[in-house]
Structure formats: C-alpha cells, structure tokens
C-alpha cells in the first residue's frame, strides 16, 4: 500500500493546482484574520470562504485526477496487487495531500490568530469536508466512464450541496412557517455535510443566539457532547458511504 501511496504523493505534490490552492487558502486566511480585529467575525468570514472553496476544489480536483489516473490504474491492475488496495491508496493519497494543503494554507493562520477550542473545530471540520468531497468525487468517477459526464456530475453535486440544498430548505421553511418544524430542521441539516459543518462551527463561535429559536434547538441537539459525537459520526458516514460504494463498484469494474 505505502509503495503506491508514495508515487501518488509524489505526483500530487508536483501538481501546480494543489500549490495554487494552498497559496489561495493562505491568502484568504491571513487577510481575513489579520484585517478583522474581532476574531469571531474573522473566523465567520473565513468559514464562508472555506465552505465554498474547499468542497469545490476537493471534488473537482479529485474527479479529474482519478480520470487522469486511468492509465496508472490499468498498469497496476495487471500486476500482483489487490484491486481494493489500488483504490484505497489512490483515495488516501488524494485525501491526505488535500488535507495537507488545507492545514498549511488555512490551518496555520487559524491556529495563530484564534483560541484553541475554536481553531481546532475549524481545522477538524475543514479536514472532514475535504475528505467527504474526495469520497463523493470517487463515487462520481465510478458511475460513468466518460470524463466530461463525470466532471459534470461532480459539479452538480457540489452545486446541490453548496447552494441548491439551502434554497430547498429555505423554501420548506417558508412553506411550513406556521408549524413547529425546528426539530425537522435538525434532521434536514444533518443530510448535508456542508450545513452540518457550518452549524457545528457557529455553535462553537457562540453566534448561535443570532439564529433565534432554531439556533437554540441546534444548540440543544448539536451543542451537547452527545450531539457532537453524533455530528461527527454523521460526517464520518458521509466519507464511508460514498467511498464504500465506489470501492464495491471498482472491484467489479472492467478495465
């Protein structure tokens, strides 16, 4: 496993896109955190940038990378290697290098500028979001052989999780405004890894009071220790499910 991983790492770190991604993250993080004297506000601004940019880069870069690795995969499959090993190595290679880019780019300034309990939550959530969208990318590459279609599916999924889902939730919120739907909102939120991450960090930043009654419900459900564990289990299953599905399909794929 490590032997393949080594070559995947070597390849990704030579990639200019990853270097550029690290630099841009660093630029945003340093500027938002050092320009804003209220640390919570700075983090909030950064959070919105991260929740938009990190999923997009993770899913698109991974999708394109996996398609471009088709030759590499074909080469490896004709040698004495387990198929699942190849797929897992590729996944680990991509996830770890994108996590590395995130920690170098955004993690360091966050650690330097904010208190420990807020910082660690931001970094942890950033890492989770990175891996979740790499996993979703693996699923969309295995669905179709066609590169253009695969990238299209990835962009649609990103669009859905980042923008369309919120629109849908807002629509439901208006439609059922007369009913007590706060509890259902919690369930709905947990169906989207980006929203779930946002709520987790907002609670940590103590700005949930601004979200009114719904915020209080969130605090009740996600703020407690049990809630935190459930939230991270949910985030983890957002990694395990898409990647597990892709792994099952890859083991039966004709190359």
């Amino acid at each position: 496993m490590n032997r393949i991983l080594k070559y995947v790492f070597l390849d990704i770190f030579q990639n200019k896109i990853v270097i550029l991604y690290t630099l841009i993250l660093a630029l945003f993080a340093w500027s938002t955190l050092s320009l804003e004297d209220n640390n919570s506000k700075g983090l909030l601004t950064l959070l919105n940038i991260i929740l938009l940019a990190v999923p997009l880069v993770s899913i698109l870069f991974s999708t394109i990378y996996v398609y471009n690795s088709n030759e590499f995969i074909e080469l490896l499959v004709s040698h004495p290697l387990k198929r699942s090993k190849i797929w897992i190595s590729l996944f680990l290679g991509l996830s770890l290098s994108l996590i590395f880019a995130f920690v170098i780019g955004a993690g360091i300034p966050i650690l330097l500028f904010s208190e420990w309990d807020k910082a660690y939550m931001m970094i942890l959530v950033g890492m989770f979001i990175t891996v979740i969208f790499v996993a979703i990318a693996f699923l969309s590459t295995i669905i179709t052989r066609d590169k253009a279609k695969g990238i299209g599916i990835s962009i649609l999924l990103w669009l859905y999780f980042s923008l369309l889902f919120d629109g849908l939730v807002l629509f439901l919120l208006f439609q059922f405004a007369d009913y007590p739907i706060e509890k259902y909102m919690v369930v709905l939120t947990s169906l989207n890894p980006i929203d779930l991450s946002r709520v987790l960090i907002l609670l940590e930043l103590d700005v949930s009071a601004m979200m009114g009654y719904t915020g209080a419900i969130f605090k009740l459900y996600f703020g407690s220790n049990g809630g935190l564990i459930v939230s991270f289990l949910l985030l983890f299953s957002w990694i395990a499910l898409p990647f597990g599905l892709s792994l099952i399909k890859f083991r039966k794929k004709d190359l």
Binding site: Y7, D11, E71, F72
Partner: peptide, 8 residues
C-alpha cells in the same frame, strides 16, 4: 497499447 502515467 501501453498506457502509462504521463508524468513519470
């Protein structure tokens, strides 16, 4: 047709 990673 041997297909290999182009960057290696």
């Amino acid at each position: 047709i041997g297909k290999y990673p182009v960057n290696m």
